[in-house]
Design a protein around this nucleic acid. Structure first.
Lengths: 151, 151
DNA sequence: TATAATTATTTGTATTTTGCAAATATAAAA
DNA sequence: TTTTATATTTGCAAAATACAAATAATTATA
């Protein structure tokens, strides 16, 4: 492995996924930016997350994030509820419309990925999926990278 | 494979690589933004590319890109030379300093990736590398995604 | 050849995004 | 109770973005 230029492989891969995400997504009459789709995803996958928690998960500056949430609220995709246990905290959740948009984006990206996978045979597909899981685990174990900056 | 939520796997992976790239890189006294590092990479890996070609490769609007190049020139990392064969065209290249910075970033990212890979055994490492190559090929074959938007 | 259409690049301008510093409100610690 | 810490929002100024138009050079067409 020592002789592989890993960066080159990953650069190509992440560039291409960047494009995939960039061209995604319109849903429910909204054009959703890449960042917005990540926010919706994160709110959808967490249990009653606070503003701070989602901002941390995405590695976004909290002040920037605060404003991003404001615009998602204006679009009626996200809801902000005061936490009864700690009144400094606001809990984020998706509105019905937000859930619909998040689901729709999910389907669109999965459709893109299915199409990509259709260019591989069954064995290759399994190998790739297993590898991404390995990679995600390895990154989770890493101390020097792959976690939110400054966090 | 049909039952895998591919998006979830890729969301986690690309999020983490996003962090990796975000925290990268300082080199030669400069803080290099993610976009700048992609530009340096692309100029380094192409043969006498024009402004337009690099902008297309990165999927950036040409007017935005023009200004990004201007700031890299101000930082003395990139050089712009008129193309003798077509005087509308400017050829981009790295200065000595730019080459140094690009190389340094490359080493830093490879070091991060080596650390990530150190959490896997030899067999897993080979599997993952082979898989990423498979994936890159599959994305290259895809018509519906993974290429610059609008291009 | 003259004129029109096309391509590459830059600039004008307005909008959006970003993030630091400071303000506000609440909670926990001393 | 006073101090310290945490969560969130706002003020502001700098940077990034993109559309439209300008400029300059090339190619196509009549």
């Amino acid at each position: 492995m020592k002789n592989e230029d890993l960066r080159e492989l990953f650069q190509i891969m992440t560039r291409r996924f960047g494009f995939l995400n960039k061209s995604c997504c319109s849903a429910g009459g909204f054009d959703i930016s890449l960042i917005q789709s990540h926010i919706l995803y994160e709110i959808d996958h967490r249990h009653k997350p606070s503003v701070q928690q989602v901002a941390d998960a995405l590695g976004t500056d909290i002040t920037t994030f605060s404003r991003q949430i404001q615009s998602l609220i204006k679009m009626n995709l996200v809801k902000k509820t005061p936490d009864p246990d700690d009144r400094r905290v606001y809990i984020l959740s998706l509105t019905t419309e937000g859930t619909y948009v998040a689901t729709s984006i999910n389907q669109q990206i999965n459709a893109y990925l299915d199409e990509v996978f259709s260019h591989m045979n069954e064995f290759e597909q399994e190998t790739v999926i297993r590898s991404i899981k390995l990679l995600n685990n390895a990154m989770a174990k890493s101390s020097v990278c792959c976690t939110p900056p400054l966090g």
